[in-house]
Design a protein around this nucleic acid. Structure first.
Length: 275
DNA sequence: CACCAGGACCTAG
DNA sequence: CTAGGTCCTGGT
């Protein structure tokens, strides 16, 4: 077991804010067991320390964006009433840098769904297609490569529903063009988003999630129904004419660190706009 | 039982 | 180019 001192970090908010799905929380020990690609590790927070096992220090820092100076990044939050409120409530929430392929499949599963269901999909897909791995006397399955997700029956058995055919089609596309994913990884934001959107089951919102949570494109700003509500109800104070108007508002008013602002606004929305 | 939900896609107008 | 139906599943 190793430990590391952290600043301005909330493990709970970071893991549970809906950007990452493949984890189990053990309420007896307070450890989060996390599976990212083929790595299983556990981590818990006690005050300003993270206790961790199963992952290298550098990888842990990268995964949780602990190399980022959040105080600097959130400086201009003070210009926005709702960002201030959200920052108080969710202080320490950071963007996770997760495995690209795991993120891609997770967010294909996310459409018209919810967190528990997405988690179920990911756990099941891993069970069917991943590799069994013992850790801490528990049983885990690594998250498979997209290339391996080639059995429609198993994909459906993972309760992915109408998204199953998307996953299989993406599998086919990747097999025919094995370099595509690596190419997307090194593209700029605009090109990466565009390329992702050529894949079935990936529209604008899902592509932005993948860009933000796994490709380090911190300017991505996923617009889901909650964020749409925030912009309409709190900022515009009326319904938007269309999605374009929302995008333009965001472009104008959240110039820098857009992705992080999106996360905080999203959470503000979920708690304050329930009706 | 009917309805709906953190989205994408398809089709008609 | 856009509104509205449809797609599985699981919860209400």
């Amino acid at each position: 077991m190793d430990k590391i001192k952290v600043q301005d970090f909330s493990l709970k908010h970071t893991i549970e804010c809906g950007q990452f799905f493949y984890y189990i929380y053990d309420d007896k020990t307070n450890f989060y067991y996390i599976v990212n690609k083929n790595i299983v590790f556990k981590v818990k927070q006690e005050a300003d320390y993270l206790h961790y096992y199963g992952i290298k220090k550098e990888e842990l820092i990268y995964f949780f964006s602990l190399d980022i100076d959040i105080k600097t990044m959130t400086k201009d939050f003070s210009e926005d009433k709702y960002l201030i409120l959200s920052l108080e409530k969710y202080f320490g929430m950071r963007l996770i840098r997760q495995d690209f392929e795991q993120c891609l499949i997770s967010f294909v599963c996310s459409s018209a769904s919810n967190i528990p269901k997405i988690q179920k999909n990911i756990f099941q897909l891993s069970k069917y297609f991943g590799k069994e791995t013992g850790f801490d006397s528990k049983l885990f399955f690594t998250f498979p490569k997209i290339e391996q997700l080639d059995d429609i029956t198993k994909i459906k058995n993972a309760k992915t529903g109408f998204r199953a055919k998307y996953i299989l089609e993406i599998n086919n596309i990747i097999k025919e063009n094995p370099k595509l994913l690596e190419e997307i990884k090194i593209m700029n934001y605009k090109d990466a988003k565009e390329s992702l959107m050529t894949l079935p089951g990936i529209g604008s919102k899902v592509a932005d999630c993948i860009c933000l949570f796994s490709l380090n494109h911190t300017e991505a700003f996923p617009i889901d129904t909650w964020v749409k509500q925030v912009i309409e109800n709190l900022y515009l104070k009326r319904e938007a004419k269309n999605l374009k108007e929302i995008e333009e508002y965001i472009e104008k008013n959240f110039k820098i660190n857009k992705g992080l602002k999106q996360q905080y606004l999203f959470h503000y929305a979920r708690n304050h706009l329930k009706e």
